[in-house]
Design a protein around this nucleic acid. Structure first.
Length: 257
DNA sequence: ATGGTTGCCTCGCAA
């Protein structure tokens, strides 16, 4: 069994104690982290190594940043999303580890939804679609995990009307997310729990967590060869309820060996 | 209610 998690930690420096505590209790084999908010040189590699995790990261000062942790050796295959050489943002890291190809994805937020940030988001989603097709063509087990900043459907949002015009829920965003999944990917949580309302993000503001006013935007997409092995997928709400929590909580899947 | 919270490391921006 291989246990794979994705977690937007909203600053690895602010969250290292929470991450260490969660790794000790959940003991995932592979972890995909987003929003490191630090340079690669400042990534707390040694603290994670002390827990038995190797790591690879791409960083950026103050913003973005993604990492892959694994109990097994990691071979980095890509440290940026193909398709735009001018894109400097640290949002994509792909690696082979434990016999799987995995990617840690931090898809652009895209707000406000009427300007260049939204155009960048849609272009990024189209680049991801093109690259994802190439990954499917390998006919191997691939897991694309991360913060997609995309609410797939009304069930994934506490109040769809309130989010109607938001970059995370606009129809153009949902169309591109669906287009990606419909290439042949299995969105692990929804595939196993077709009718369950469960969120992965709650805003810090307005008592969103206390009132369970969340959205589901952190996803694990599995190639057919990975989906054939899918045994479980769940959202671990426990870290979100702790003090000094990230606004996201981990999503975990288990694949048969 | 043009509000509210967190993290960056500055006095504003991104989420």
């Amino acid at each position: 069994m291989v246990k794979i998690a994705t977690w937007n930690v909203n600053s690895i420096k602010a969250r290292i104690e929470a991450v260490v505590a969660w790794l000790k209790s959940a003991s995932p084999d592979i972890v995909l982290l987003q929003e490191l908010k630090c340079l690669e040189a400042d990534f707390p590699r040694l603290e994670l190594e002390a827990l038995g995790y190797q790591s690879a990261a791409v960083g950026q000062k103050s913003y973005n940043g993604v990492a892959v942790l694994s109990k097994r050796p990691i071979e980095v295959t890509l440290s940026r999303l193909p398709g735009d050489e001018s894109d400097e943002q640290a949002r994509y890291l792909e690696a082979v580890t434990a016999g799987l190809r995995v990617a840690s994805i931090y898809l652009p937020n895209g707000n406000p939804p009427d300007g260049e940030k939204y155009a960048y988001k849609l272009a990024w989603m189209e680049r991801l679609q093109r690259h994802a097709r190439d990954l499917l063509a390998t006919e191997t087990a691939v897991v694309l995990g991360g913060d997609y900043n995309a609410i797939p459907a009304a069930l994934d949002c506490y109040d769809p009307a309130a989010w109607a015009g938001d970059a995370l829920y606009k129809i153009e965003t949902r169309q591109r997310f669906r287009g990606l999944v419909n290439q042949g990917w299995t969105e692990a949580f929804r595939a196993l729990h077709p009718h369950v309302r469960s969120y992965s993000f709650w805003d810090y503001q307005g008592g969103a967590w206390q009132n369970d006013l969340g959205i589901r935007i952190d996803h694990l997409l599995l190639s057919p060869q990975a989906a054939d092995r899918l045994e479980d997928c769940r959202i671990d709400r426990e870290p979100r309820g702790r003090k000094k929590a990230s606004d996201h909580t981990p999503v975990i899947c288990e694949l048969a060996a």
